[in-house]
Computed example of a mutant assay.
Amino acid sequence: MRYLIAETNWDMMTLAQELVTNGTLLTRTDRPEDLEHFARIGQVDLILLAAGQLGRDGVTIDSLRAANPRAPIALVARNTTSEQMATWIMAGADTVIDPRTDHEETLARLQAVARRAHGLGRPVLQYGPLRVDLMHRRAHIGDVRLKLTPKVYELLEFIALRPGRLVTRESLLTHIYGLENEPDPRVFDVYMCNLRSQLAASGGAVDIETARGSGFRFVADDIPDAAIAA
């Protein structure tokens, strides 16, 4: 998954480093006024900012929600009162994190909020014999772990979180590389071929179809209709 984070103080910079170490993709900015722009143009699964930034530089929960209605919003704040917490939640925040919370708990809480926006209660995607472990960033077909590089794993995770739906090449590249320089298109084709060759072990139960000129679609025998329509 990719998070958008505003690194406006030491707590936010420390959290960003913890997320990078865990393998989470980040779109980072030290200019809170740019959050709305990045939220609108980027493929992000969660928006993270310090609660004290709200109301400054035009940053509000409403403006971020308008820029990207699908992305949950997580606030980071120390020493919050119950009244403050209730105010932020009622205003539209999805969770409030104390930066002193245990590292593992923080990562788990943030991912839980992000994946629930995709309709997932647990950190595992299961399609026939394919199992994708979102927390540990790995995938298995049956009992065999797939040998995925970080980039190929991100490709699988992004498309498997959107089963049955058309995913454009541009959206995939934006998710994997953020707003940084994208690779030569041939490199991306190598990633896709690598992933397809490994999914072939499912015997056709899962696959990635090419919609020529449009993008790609993750297909499986057991995708619920509700997931396709989401």
Rank of each mutant, 00 (worst) to 15 (best):
L15W: 12
G42H: 02
G121H: 12
L19R: 01
L161I: 11
L120N: 06
P32V: 14
T14N: 04
V113C: 04
D189G: 13
N9R: 06
S82E: 15
Q126L: 03
L107S: 05
T174Y: 06
M12I: 12
R40N: 08
R2D: 07
V124Q: 08
L166N: 08
R196G: 10
A91S: 14
R131H: 02
T168H: 08
A200L: 11
A93H: 03
T168Q: 08
L161T: 11
L199F: 01
E154V: 11
L155E: 08
V144G: 02
E182D: 10
A50W: 00
G119W: 13
I47Q: 02
I97P: 13
N181D: 12
Q126I: 09
P32W: 02
T60H: 03
L4Y: 00
A139G: 06
V219P: 05
A211V: 15
P150N: 02
P123Q: 04
G42Y: 03
R217G: 03
N9I: 12
H136G: 11
A139C: 09
D207V: 05
Y127N: 07
V59C: 07
R162V: 14
D143P: 02
T60L: 08
A93Q: 01
M13L: 13
M12K: 01
T149E: 15
D102G: 01
R169D: 14
S171K: 00
A229E: 14
A112G: 11
R116N: 14
Q43R: 03
D222E: 10
T24H: 03
L48M: 07
A226R: 03
V20T: 15
L172V: 15
T8W: 00
K147I: 13
F218W: 06
T168M: 09
A220D: 06
